[in-house]
Design a protein around this nucleic acid. Structure first.
Length: 414
DNA sequence: CACCGTCAAGTCGCA
DNA sequence: TGCGACTTGACGGTG
């Protein structure tokens, strides 16, 4: 089971680190820019640090790490200014066998019919490449891109992509990988083009569900695998699930254990690194790492349950009691996560919400002022209407009065 | 300090 | 032809 590195994208939700400090274009100055980059890089290092302490060895670096990195207003040689910091981070990545990636957004379109768009897209792609090059990380560290638009004529659009690709630097050509998208280009389209360009294909399971092709999953997997060479490193895939309450394509809040295990069963014969695309970022990454760990230390069960317990209690007290029981019996981490998932997916329950809010309030009760108490209990009169506000108030109180057991739990996240 | 409009950017569907 | 949706967090101006 050590086949897999599990990763998440860009912005952890439970850590105070941010790598996307920026300005609006009209306020762009060298001084402000350097300040942002300096802080962003510091936080990137802190994130990677946290990741390896939690057995997470795969991470997508945000395109925002360098503000206006590929923009024409930016003529600052940041790779010189921050040479030391960048190499320091790169060393850390290399020494710890971390894999990183980057993923330019929907506005980077290499196959546009407009030359100005293509030019800007190349600048943006070269920026991403320059960043990874500046870290001095090898060519297993990739830049993921979608094919772009169709413009009513897919074959011609694909040909334009090839022309665009031929204009890229040698280093970028070695880093670029193509991913199927949810609307236009299926994994079959991507594989066909990847074979022509001799670059790897990234398979995204949710995009494939929304934008399917006539290949079976086994055919897809073997074709995708064939696009990855020794120099590219392990196959990379994107894993996400549909948020059942939102419209097609919306990523779920968290990885559902049962679904993830089913997915693992389908790809078990391949060596794959999995980039999770879910809202709860590093928390699901940690969850998947624990799911894959056949010999977890016993303390993991307790520490994970401690984080989730109030979120479970808030949904259903019976589920809470059940989880508490199985944590203390010879159940696996997977059994526990499945029980937690089941609870988290339940709808809002007024009685359970109030009980849990009062339970958590108990932690700060003896410190709160009269006014704080009044605000809390007033809001609690209308739980459904005020649920977000109530938790915000509790979060502030727990922070103010140093209730770290609650602060470090996921109660304010799920 | 809370709130909210706007943001650098491209395609596509629809009126 | 032009506009909203898509999707995203955060900047920065307002009250």
């Amino acid at each position: 089971m050590l086949n897999y590195k599990i990763g998440y994208a860009c912005s952890p939700i439970s850590l105070q680190y941010r790598t996307s400090r920026s300005t609006i274009l009209k306020n762009f100055t060298e001084e402000k820019f350097n300040e942002c980059v300096n802080e962003n890089l510091k936080d990137l290092k802190s994130i990677l640090d946290w990741n390896i302490k939690n057995n997470i060895y795969f991470f997508r670096i945000s395109s925002d790490i360098i503000p206006f990195g590929g923009h024409e207003v930016n003529n600052i040689k940041w790779w010189d200014t921050f040479k030391y910091e960048l190499e320091n981070i790169g060393n850390f990545i290399n020494e710890n066998d971390i894999r990183v990636s980057m993923h330019p957004g929907q506005y980077t379109v290499l196959n546009s019919t407009k030359e100005s768009v293509v030019t800007k897209s190349i600048l943006d792609l070269e920026y991403h490449c320059r960043f990874l090059d500046a870290l001095k990380v090898d060519y297993t560290n990739k830049i993921t891109l979608h094919l772009g638009g169709v413009y009513g004529d897919k074959p011609t659009a694909v040909k334009r992509f090839i022309s665009g690709f031929n204009r890229l630097s040698p280093s970028l050509k070695k880093r670029l990988v193509l991913e199927n998208d949810d609307k236009s280009y299926t994994i079959k389209d991507v594989i066909a083009l990847c074979k022509i360009l001799k670059i790897p294909a990234i398979f995204d399971n949710l995009h494939n569900k929304l934008n399917p092709c006539d290949l079976t999953l086994d055919e897809i997997l073997s074709e995708v695998a064939s696009t990855w060479t020794e120099n590219d490193g392990a196959i990379k895939m994107h894993y996400s699930e549909q948020d059942a309450n939102k419209k097609n394509g919306s990523h779920s809040k968290f990885v559902i254990t049962k679904n993830f295990i089913e997915y693992l069963g389908q790809i078990h014969h391949l060596k794959v690194d999995i980039m999770l695309e879910v809202k709860d970022k590093e928390l699901s990454a940690l969850k998947c790492v624990n799911i894959l760990n056949l010999h977890p230390s016993p303390s993991i069960k307790y520490s994970q349950w401690a984080k989730y317990k109030y979120s479970v209690m808030e949904k259903n007290y019976t589920n809470y009691k059940y989880c508490s029981k199985i944590v203390n019996s010879p159940n696996t981490m997977i059994n526990i996560y499945e029980a937690i998932d089941q609870a988290l997916l339940l709808p809002f329950s007024q009685g359970n919400f109030i009980n849990t809010a009062e339970h958590v309030y108990g932690y700060v009760k003896k410190y709160t002022t009269m006014k704080e108490k009044e605000i809390f209990f007033n809001l609690l009169e209308e739980p459904l209407l005020n649920k977000d506000k109530i938790k915000l108030v509790l979060q502030r109180l727990c922070k103010k009065y140093g209730q770290n057991y609650i602060n470090e739990s996921y109660y304010f996240i799920y």
